[in-house]
């Protein structure tokens, strides 16, 4: 199997895992298994209440939530092995290409750490800060995989990629955009954490009122979201209109950034107006993960192009 396909598959699988992880959070299944790495002391979660060992309170058992959480762990292990195979492949074939070797090894180390840190999240009974760290590591892993995949594609397609010229400044703007998206994700995480804390302090307020109560961060997040979407669309128009000068990956990224930026604003408004429906929450988070990855790929593609 070609390395770049393996690396691409690992990236896609990691995105799926990020979705599943978000789903665990919004469905409230994070404590579906009170222990780690086993679930109720078993490698296969219990299906009947009698299978629960005496030292664990059977009132904690909920068949559905246990399996949701456990499937996240199983998929996590599967994706972990996929990333491990990327790293092993890189060690054997690309020992002398540090731009592939080191990020691949870092990705697998972070993935192992992520599994262990997930256990800490469960042990802390879902402490908001640790949950956010868990998400941040996932974003980091997927960014590394995108970097590796991009390098691998460049390696194979180096001769076929024509020397293209980009308008001055567009690479810089792509980099700024990636940074803005990272800031936006951090702000979004903060909004989410604040809602959790505020809902305990003000039990009489509904989620929309809570968002208003949080104030600055939530306005910042909304405003920055609109700015990012507008910049993405403007860059999209430039790139798509003048596609002669751009590689097709850059154009794909431009379409995706503009389109997803638009979705993200709509979903953000729905969250604001309709009291954080869980399904929209997980999609909002998943698109954020996609946006940060695609913005990175866009930047890398333009940067590579402008050098040759």
């Amino acid at each position: 199997m070609r390395f770049r396909l393996l690396s691409l598959a690992a990236t896609a699988a990691t995105y799926f895992l990020i979705f599943v992880g978000g789903l665990v959070r919004v469905s409230g299944a994070g404590l579906g298994c009170p222990d780690w790495p086993k679930c109720f002391g078993r490698w296969i979660p219990p299906v009947r209440i009698e299978q629960i060992p005496p030292e664990i309170d059977p009132a904690l058992f909920n068949f559905t939530l246990a399996w949701i959480e456990y499937i996240n762990r199983l998929i996590g292990v599967g994706v972990g092995f996929l990333i491990l195979s990327v790293a092993l492949y890189a060690i054997f074939r690309f020992r002398h290409r540090p731009k592939i070797l080191f990020p691949a090894i870092l990705a697998v180390v972070l993935t192992a750490f992520q599994g262990w840190q997930g256990g800490k999240v469960v042990a802390s009974e879902l402490e908001p800060m640790l949950v956010s760290v868990h998400m941040a590591i996932a974003f980091l892993i997927v960014s590394l995989l995108i970097y590796v995949t991009h390098q691998a594609y460049h390696l194979d397609g180096a001769k076929t990629t024509l020397a293209v010229e980009y308008p001055a400044g567009i690479t810089k703007w792509a980099g700024i955009m990636w940074l803005l998206i990272i800031i936006q994700v951090i702000a979004g995480t903060h909004v989410r954490g604040s809602i959790e804390i505020m809902s305990r302090r003000f039990p009489l307020l509904n989620p929309a009122e809570l968002l208003a109560e949080i104030g600055a961060v939530s306005y910042f997040h909304s405003l920055l979201g609109i700015i990012i979407a507008l910049v993405a669309m403007a860059m999209g128009v430039i790139v798509i209109k003048d596609s002669r000068d751009f590689s097709s990956i850059a154009i794909q990224c431009a379409w995706a950034l503009a389109g997803l930026g638009f979705f993200q604003i709509i979903f953000g408004m729905v969250l604001f107006l309709f009291g954080n429906p869980p399904v929209i929450q997980v999609l909002h988070l998943w698109i954020a993960a996609l946006l940060s990855g695609i913005a990175l790929l866009f930047f890398l593609t333009l940067k590579k192009g402008s050098k040759t």
């Binding site: 979705f19 789903l23 409230g28 154009i251 379409w255 995706a256 389109g259 997803l260 997980v282 999609l283």
Partner: peptide
């Protein structure tokens, strides 16, 4: 001009994942 295949694939994935999310959240 290339067809926005990446965006289309992502939108299809979004629709499928939204369906999965609705089922899982309501079951939970």
């Amino acid at each position: 001009k290339p067809f926005p295949i990446l965006l289309i694939v992502i939108i299809i994935a979004l629709i499928l994942l939204a369906a999965v999310a609705i089922i899982v959240v309501s079951r939970a």
